[in-house]
Amino acid sequence: MHPLTVYCIKALAQHCHEFSEPSWLYKTFGYHDLKNWMKILELYELLGDEVSRETLKRIIRWRIMAGILPEGRVDELFPIISSADWAELERRAEQFPAIEGDSLFDRLETWILKGYEHEQCQVETGETVFDIGAFTGNTGRYFAEKTGTKGKVYCFEPHPRFFALLQKNVRDCPQVECVQAGCAAKDGEAMLIDASTSSVLSEKGVLPVVIRSVDSFVAEHGISKVDYIKMDIEGLEPESLDGARETIRRFHPKLAVCVYHKPDHLHSLLEKIRSFGLPYSYHLKHSSRLTTETVLFAQPQYKDARHAARERERERERERAGCQGGRRRSHGCHRRTFAAKSNRCHAVSPTFRLGMLCPAHQTFSCLYRVAKDIQDVQTAIPQPERIRHDRPHFRRHTLP
């Protein structure tokens, strides 16, 4: 049985006596995770280090348990970062000088937890960074410090009020260039919902803003290299990645992309990056007590982008020569592909109707069914009580 499945089942078994019965589960990210369990397991296999896998386990457990435990209990039982540790982090963040428009959390996330860098994926001196979703400038100042005077940081922020603060807060950083625009799949104009830190492009918005694609911006300004792209844009990361496709293929930059704004982003954004056909290793980092501030990092497996280009050309030649199988599933980064480990788990039956069960038992049943051998669960973990309903058709979906 897959270790992530075991991890979640143990949490469910340990606290099954606290399960609530409302339909809240169907509205949570955890419900989406259960419906896409095979993709979650594939994400687990693709992560390139044990710390990232442990982070994913904690996040998934939180998301599932938040839908079936009484309100507030998941934070008490399964904190991603404990209250004591968080208090210490806040104390340390208070030592950093504030900039206009930021918050204690902004300083904690950026400077203490270094939420937009991973030990396997960092900004180096002299690199060119695209800070997409720069807000009031904390991340811009952080990246400017990392790149030094020989580097370059392009800070994208569409909100007029935040852009003014951004310009003010980075005025002493000559390597930072502020761009008053959002990033999307193509150039144009859009409407922005004014919601402070959660401002997002939407047809219901009231603020007209300019949007640019990364590809057109790079071409227009004749930028000769892009080394690092950070995206935190309130759910528009897929569109922004589409607009940066050619830049990513050309320069093969390091990527730091937020994956917590929408339920599917945790796995779908990795799938999108993999579709570019570049050799990356993947890592995950979380910088919050709740399930926000989760960032997926993509670290190039070739130090030289030209080397990557040559590899892609060789793959095209092999395809033209009739090489079966197309590109390697791992894109050169992970030999331990999910396909090679498919014998560890089975897909959820498409005929399994989640809505037939109450939230607590449907969660158990879903996790049971993705296991390779249901007997492993029955012998290792206490079973929940059987579901008893008056109507006969419900009995067909109860646990063994």
Results as ranks from 00 to 15, higher is better:
residue 303 K to E: 12
residue 190 A to W: 11
residue 308 A to G: 08
residue 153 V to Y: 10
residue 237 E to T: 10
residue 216 S to Q: 05
residue 357 L to H: 01
residue 98 A to Q: 13
residue 178 C to I: 08
residue 263 P to W: 06
residue 129 V to H: 14
residue 67 G to H: 04
residue 390 D to A: 11
residue 268 S to C: 04
residue 289 R to K: 10
residue 324 Q to P: 01
residue 168 K to L: 09
residue 53 R to V: 03
residue 321 A to P: 00
residue 268 S to P: 03
residue 153 V to E: 06
residue 278 L to M: 15
residue 139 T to D: 09
residue 138 N to D: 10
residue 218 V to I: 15
residue 341 K to A: 13
residue 270 L to C: 11
residue 135 F to M: 07
residue 153 V to F: 10
residue 195 A to H: 10
residue 229 I to Y: 11
residue 155 C to E: 02
residue 8 C to M: 09
residue 329 R to F: 11
residue 94 E to S: 13
residue 330 S to E: 14
residue 134 A to R: 08
residue 122 Q to W: 08
residue 132 I to M: 06
residue 318 R to T: 03
residue 204 K to N: 10
residue 254 K to Y: 06
residue 283 H to G: 02
residue 48 G to N: 03
residue 212 R to Y: 04
residue 209 V to Y: 03
residue 219 A to R: 13
residue 221 H to T: 00
residue 395 R to T: 08
residue 49 D to L: 04
residue 382 P to Q: 01
residue 101 G to E: 03
residue 188 G to V: 05
residue 315 E to V: 08
residue 263 P to A: 06
residue 277 G to A: 01
residue 300 P to G: 05
residue 2 H to G: 03
residue 127 E to Q: 15
residue 167 Q to Y: 12
residue 22 P to L: 00
residue 255 L to Q: 12
residue 263 P to V: 05
residue 323 C to S: 14
residue 41 L to M: 08
residue 359 P to K: 01
residue 260 Y to E: 03
residue 272 K to C: 02
residue 293 E to D: 15
residue 288 S to W: 14
residue 105 F to V: 09
residue 310 R to D: 14
residue 156 F to Y: 13
residue 345 C to P: 00
residue 130 F to Q: 04
residue 77 L to E: 11
residue 16 C to Y: 03
residue 358 C to M: 05
residue 134 A to M: 03
residue 330 S to I: 05
residue 152 K to S: 06
residue 288 S to Y: 15
residue 382 P to E: 01
